[in-house]
Design a protein around this nucleic acid. Sequence first.
DNA 1: TTCGTCATGTAAGAAGTTACATGATTTC
DNA 2: GAAATCATGTAACTTCTTACATGACGAA
Lengths: 198, 198
Amino acid sequence: MDDATGKIGLSTAAYVVLGMVRLGARTGYEIKQMTEQSIRYFWTISPVQIYPSLTQLEASGLITGREDPQGRRPRRVYEITDAGQAALREWLGRPGPIPFELRDLGLVKLFFADALDPGQAHDVLRAVRERSEDRVAALRAVEPTARAARDRGAAYPELTLLMGIAFHQAMADLCRDFEQRYADAADGEPGSATQPLL
Amino acid sequence: MDDATGKIGLSTAAYVVLGMVRLGARTGYEIKQMTEQSIRYFWTISPVQIYPSLTQLEASGLITGREDPQGRRPRRVYEITDAGQAALREWLGRPGPIPFELRDLGLVKLFFADALDPGQAHDVLRAVRERSEDRVAALRAVEPTARAARDRGAAYPELTLLMGIAFHQAMADLCRDFEQRYADAADGEPGSATQPLL
DNA sequence: TTCGTCATGTAAGAAGTTACATGATTTC
DNA sequence: GAAATCATGTAACTTCTTACATGACGAA
C-alpha cells in the first residue's frame, strides 16, 4: 500500500498527520478530531498511528513539539517547521500511481441481485439508494464548514467534499433510474443460469 | 468488517464465491478470473480466500463438487445447490448496515493541496483527473460484456458498471471545473495557516 | 522446448482495527 | 458527583496481501 510513500521512511499516515498539523491541529487528540471531521470519508487513521507518527516527525525535524500541560494533565503541542512544509509539498507533488480503493458491499449485493425475484431486488436497490442519500445529506451538512475554511485560505477541502457529494449523488440517481425502469417489469422468476453469464 | 455476515458462519468472501458459482464459474480458478473481470473495482478476493470458501460451502451443502481432472491435472468443478440459492438470497436480502469503504490517496492529496503553490496544485488536480478518466475508459471497455450478460438474464452487473463510470466521471468533471476556475487565478503564494483552518 | 495458462494450495509478513488501560479536566 | 471530554498510549487480534510452491496442459 505504500506505493506512493517512496524511499523516504515516512508512511502515508505520517504525511496525513503532518498535513493536519499544518492546518492547525496542535495535539494528537486534535489531529484525530480534525481527521474525523474532514477526511474520514476517504481516509482513516487511528490514534495508534498518530502518536508514533508525531514522534517520528519530530525526530525528523518536520515538526517541533513542546510540553504544554493543562493543569496536571500532560499535553504536547506541535507546530510544523519549514522543513515540514517542504516535506509535505514534496509528498503532495511526488509523481507515481495514486492508489484508489473502493470496498462496497452494496455494489457487491447489487451485482448479484439477479438471483433475487424482482421485489427483493427492488429492496436491495432501495437500501443502497437510501444509504447514498443519507451520505449525501451528511456531507451537505458539512458544507458550511468547508466554505468557511475556503474563505480562510483552504479551498481544496471544499473540493473533496463536493466530490464525495457528487459521487454518492450519482449512485443514488442510478439506483432511482433502475428502480423506475424495473418498477412494473414484473418478469416473474429470477434468472436461472445454466451456462456462464459472464 | 463482518458487520453484514451475521450469525451464520460464512464470511463475505464465501458469499461472493457462492454468487460467482451461481453465475457459472465452475472452478476456483474460474472464480478468480470472473472476479477480476467484474467486481474487482469494488471488491477483491484472493485465491487464499477462494479455496477454503469452496471447501466450506460444499461442507455446508450450498454447492456440490466433483472431481473432473483434465488429463493428469487435478480439477474440481462446482455447482450451486437449491440450499445454496436460498442461502445466497437470504444474504442478499439480509437487513442491516451496508459497509462502504473508500480509501483514496488522490482525495487526500487534493485535501492538502492548499499547501502547494497554484501551479503545483494544478498538477495534482490534473493527475487525479487523468486517473479518473483512465478508469472511465477502462470501465467503458467492459460495457459490451455487461450488455451481453444483461441479454442473457443478468441485468445488475451492468448497473454496477454504470455506477463505476458515473462515479469516476463525476470526479473527473469536478477536477476539470476546478482546473478552469483556478487556471488564471494566480494568487501567488500558498496559504499560510497561523490559526486553525478547520 | 519454452512460455503462457490452468489449477490448487501454504507460509510468512505487513497493516490496520479493536479493545484495553490510565487518569485529569470540564460540564451538568 | 456523574458523565462527557481531553489526552496518550499498549497489547492482542484480525485481516489481507505477497511470495512461495507445485505441477500439468497447450501452443508456438
